[in-house]
Structure formats: C-alpha cells, structure tokens
C-alpha cells in the first residue's frame, strides 16, 4: 500500500449548518492524479477549499502528511478572480514566487527568468506586459497555470480548471498536469467532463456530499454509481440551486 499525502477522516463541512460535505473519509496517495466529480452542490469545491485551509471542518478532520502550507498550490475557480483587475500578466505569474519573496521581498535575477520560462511553458511568451483584462478565458487560465508552475508545490489542487476553456488550451494544460504527475507531484482536480476524466485521470473520487466511490477511475465511474449520485442530488432541497447537472 502506498503512503497517503492527505487523509480525510469522517469529514463534514457545512455552510450555515447545511452540510456541503457529509461524513466523507478516504485518502489521496502520494503522487496520485485524482479527479473529483459529482453533481452540482456535491461539495467538490468545498472539499478542495477545506484541504487548502480556506474552510474549517465542522466535524472530522483533514490530515496533511508532512505538508506545510507552502507545499500546497491552489487554483481557484475563475469566477472567484476579478479578471478586470488592472494587473499585468507578468505580475500575476510572479505571484507564484510568493513563498520565496513574501510580503516585501524583490524578485532576484533568476526569478525574472523563471517567470519568463513559466510563461513560455504555457505558450504565452511575450505576453508579460499585457494587462490580464486583455486576455481570453483560455489565455488567462494559461497564466494561472504558469503561476502554479512557479509555486513548485508537492500537492496541486485545481478547481474546475477547464470550465469555459477552449479545446486547444485544455489539451495544453492537460499536458502540464501529466507532466506534474510524471514528476511525482500529487494532483487533485475538480472536473465535469467524464470522458476527460476516464482518459487522463487514473484515480477518481465520486462525491455527492458523501463519498460514493473512490479509487481507480474505471471502477468508480460506473453507470450505477453515477445514477446513485444523481438520485442523491435530487434529494437536496431547501433552497439549494438546481442547475442542470452535467456530471453524467
């Protein structure tokens, strides 16, 4: 059995006393590449946020094995970022050096080169001086991946990295995810496209507030399990949003 990097132990996380994640348990093995899937409102983003430390467990706990805050990189959903903000592509990517430069440090010579390299790596060479407001959603996601590259983290958490992103960009970014996986980093991504998950993600966690399945993707994404997740989702009421679910 491989060692785990994150253990989830009977975890419940609630918004205003409504559980978003309900008595979930399991482990992410070191170096695993896991997709988190499930209906809307299933607690996928909440689980990521709790692992990062943005939300606190109501009951249960998350055990991070030998993993300081700086070893975790987190990609928020694009909707949580103000894309009209007056900041350049270079400055956004350079935030990936935060662990090295902190609140007041300056970027040393090697840092400048690393930012430029990261931009080249995501196919945005020469975009450094552009304001982020001028970028398309796909280009902006490339910028955020360049920032993740600089963070050089052991654990990388991606919240819907390909939502509203063009196909070409998705392909390029998937290649980066595979590279992270090959480098032995642990990657956890919230995703919606089941074909993409089956094709690129060896492990899957199917979440519907509780864990429906967790393990090798082929064993988890069965028609039966997906149906169970959907049925559970239909039972969530009390003013929760019911968008058309695309987790099928």
């Amino acid at each position: 059995m491989t060692a785990s990097i994150i253990d989830i132990d009977d975890l419940t996380v609630a918004y205003e006393r409504r559980p978003a994640v309900h008595h979930a348990s399991g482990s992410f093995p070191v170096g695993s590449l896991t997709a988190i899937v499930g209906p809307n409102g299933a607690g996928k983003s909440t689980l990521l946020k709790t692992i990062v430390g943005l939300m606190a467990p109501s009951t249960g706990r998350i055990v991070r094995h030998d993993l300081p805050r700086r070893a975790i990189a987190y990609l928020p959903q694009q909707a949580e970022i103000d894309r009209s903000f007056p900041i350049t592509v270079f400055d956004t990517v350079a935030l990936g050096l935060w662990n090295e430069i902190g609140l007041w440090g300056q970027i040393a010579g090697a840092g400048w080169r690393r930012v430029a390299d990261a931009l080249a790596h995501v196919g945005l060479e020469g975009f450094g001086r552009q304001p982020i407001a001028a970028l398309s959603a796909g280009q902006f996601q490339r910028v955020l991946f360049a920032r993740l590259l600089l963070q050089d983290a052991k654990l990388i958490l991606l919240d819907e990295p390909f939502a509203a992103i063009d196909e070409r960009t998705t392909e390029d970014l998937l290649a980066i995810i595979r590279q992270w996986h090959a480098e032995g980093r642990t990657v956890i991504a919230v995703l919606h496209d089941m074909d993409q998950v089956r094709q690129h993600f060896p492990q899957t966690l199917l979440l519907a507030r509780e864990t429906i399945g967790w393990g090798p993707t082929v064993e988890v994404l069965t028609a039966d399990a997906l149906r169970r997740a959907r049925t559970l989702a239909q039972g969530w009421s009390n003013g929760h949003h019911h968008h058309a679910e695309h987790a099928a």
């Binding site: 943005l54 805050r69 987190y74 928020p76 949580e80 970022i81 103000d82 935030l95 609140l103």
Partner: peptide, 12 residues
C-alpha cells in the same frame, strides 16, 4: 482584491 482565494491559500 484580485484573487482572494490565492492569498488566503498561500499566506492566510
């Protein structure tokens, strides 16, 4: 202002 989730994740 720009990316509150990132700041809280990296610096708290």
């Amino acid at each position: 202002c720009f990316d509150p989730g990132f700041l809280r994740a990296i610096a708290g």
